[in-house]
């Protein structure tokens, strides 16, 4: 039986209660919306991308604790990074959230140079609750789309 503590880790609840990088960016170079029509989650990501660097990121929207915490942790993890590093983090996160056909998931690869790696690993428990995976990935899919648009 999947334990609720695997899902609602303290660091996740902390990000839910005190989300980082909330708000709009007036000088944003891109604004991208993400939706989860089944649960009604909505997210807007504002980015400032300059010279191949994600200089700033802010988020607005609403959703469950998992989607809100995931987007907050994501914003901390990617802010100030070079775009290729941002894409790398996105890929790693999406791999962590991938459930194989046999129901097993990949453990997150340790990567000590990522400042927020420990925090992101807290979301690994979400894969034990398959219906919640889409809550955790909404922000990341939206960010990937935002980067595609920003660099198109």
């Amino acid at each position: 039986m999947a334990n609720l503590d695997d899902l609602y880790r303290e660091i996740i609840l902390d990000h839910y209660r005190s989300p980082r990088n909330r708000g709009e960016l007036v000088e944003a170079t891109s604004r991208t919306e993400g939706f989860n029509p089944l649960c009604g989650d909505e997210l807007v990501i504002y980015l400032i991308v300059r010279d191949g660097v994600l200089e700033d990121i802010k988020l607005t929207g609403h959703g469950c604790s998992i989607s809100q915490a995931s987007s907050s942790m994501m914003s901390s993890a990617v802010k100030g990074k070079r775009l290729e590093d941002v894409r790398h983090v996105i890929d790693r996160f999406k791999t962590m959230m991938t459930l194989h056909d046999d129901g097993t998931a990949d453990a997150p690869a340790p990567e000590p140079d990522l400042r927020s790696d420990g925090e992101l690993a807290a979301l690994a428990g979400v894969v034990k609750f398959p219906v919640r995976i889409k809550c955790a990935t909404l922000a990341w899919n939206t960010l990937a789309q935002a980067l595609d648009e920003a660099t198109a």
Binding site: L4, Y8, G63, C64, S65, I66, F129
Partner: peptide, 13 residues
């Protein structure tokens, strides 16, 4: 302070 999705998740326990 608790999203309906989270309410339902805790209730499932």
């Amino acid at each position: 302070g608790v999203h309906p999705h989270d309410v339902a998740q805790v209730l499932d326990q």
